[in-house]
């Protein structure tokens, strides 16, 4: 069971959150990408074994998006921060 310290609400149970995806910066100019580069952005994941930065949604809390740094091997949550607007 994860306890995720929401930067807006404090520590909350994982039940309240939705894990969305690892953070991948959106390409500045999608039209300039080749099909393969765009496919890589849309579908592929690093899916690392260890630390990862993810976007989570605090659905049953403040309903805001946050960034969670989490370890996929140990389930530690190192820190969270508000998602950039």
């Amino acid at each position: 069971m994860l306890v995720i310290p929401c930067p807006h609400c404090g520590p909350r149970n994982e039940d309240e959150f939705v894990c969305w995806s690892e953070v991948v910066p959106r390409p500045a100019d999608p039209a300039a990408l080749s099909d393969l580069e765009w496919t890589d952005y849309v579908y592929n994941h690093a899916n690392p074994r260890g630390w990862v930065r993810e976007q989570w949604w605090h659905e049953h809390g403040c309903r805001r998006w946050i960034i969670v740094e989490r370890n996929t091997l140990t389930h530690e949550v190192a820190r969270t921060e508000p998602a950039p607007r």
Binding site: M1, L2, E14, D15, V18, C19, E22, N47, R49, V52, E54, R70, T72, L73, T74, H75
Partner: peptide, 13 residues
């Protein structure tokens, strides 16, 4: 369980 994990264990919920 609804998030990526290599831990070979899941959540109690």
């Amino acid at each position: 369980d609804p998030y990526p994990s290599y831990a070979q264990r899941g959540s109690f919920r």
